[in-house]
């Protein structure tokens, strides 16, 4: 691995020298920031730490997660800990899983330009443009599938010229899919009914009253479902 080196970065324009082995988040802290906003899971699951940056001599704007991006020399960075994306008000159990529902709640779905800025700005490398195209066709299942790994950081919203609220449209589609379109788990509903009917009451009472020595024996000799 490359040698540890001290490199310059610019936090909101101010220069700091930090080790090149750190993530952006680690570098902010190394520089002395005690983070309150812009940090959550520290492991690329929560979308709290979106960061916009540019590199010296390069006009392009890059987007990354501060917890999942290594610092580079000459990085000019700023965090975007909050972005005011619109969320429609609804109650899932009152909805129908249709294109009409999507358009009613998020009329601007129809205004998507297909420019692909969203896809370019996604730190999860999701095909945001493709799922927005699916939303425009009312293909809820496809939106749900393509958007599944979204951590709702909001960076696509921040760059979108059509002012879409992609992550909120996506979660609506995933919930519609999960509740109405995905096949039901029959065995699950059946087991819940069995439990409610008291089918396991006696056995549970019995195992709870079993002395520890016997429980240990039961545990150590229990059969294990093969792989």
């Amino acid at each position: 691995m490359a040698e540890l080196e001290m490199i310059p970065i610019y936090i909101m324009g101010k220069r700091y020298i930090v080790p090149n082995t750190l993530t952006i988040m680690g570098a902010l802290e190394y520089a002395g920031y005690k983070l309150i906003r812009g940090v959550g899971c520290r492991a690329a699951f929560c979308g709290a730490c979106s960061t916009v940056y540019r590199l010296e001599g390069d006009p392009k704007l890059y987007i990354g997660l501060a917890c999942g991006t290594l610092v580079q020399p000459g990085m000019y960075l700023t965090q975007i800990p909050f972005y005011p994306a619109e969320r429609a008000q609804y109650r899932l159990h009152e909805l129908e899983p249709t294109f009409a529902t999507l358009v009613r709640l998020y009329p601007q779905v129809l205004k998507c330009l297909g420019c692909g800025t969203c896809t370019k700005s996604c730190p999860q490398d999701l095909k945001v443009k493709d799922y927005m195209a699916a939303a425009m066709r009312g293909d809820i299942a496809r939106v749900a599938d393509l958007s599944f790994d979204c951590i709702m950081c909001g960076m696509c919203v921040s760059r979108c010229p059509a002012e879409e609220a992609q992550p909120n449209i996506a979660i609506l589609c995933r919930r519609l899919y999960g509740k109405y379109l995905a096949p039901r788990a029959q065995h699950l509903a059946q087991r819940v009914a069995e439990i409610e009917a008291g089918r396991y009451d006696e056995e549970l009472a019995k195992i709870k009253a079993t002395p520890e020595a016997e429980l240990r024996h039961m545990y150590n000799t229990r059969d294990i479902e093969p792989e």
Partner: peptide, 8 residues
């Protein structure tokens, strides 16, 4: 969770 739309 399934009824709330969780995609297991």
């Amino acid at each position: 969770l399934e009824s709330l739309g969780c995609m297991f």
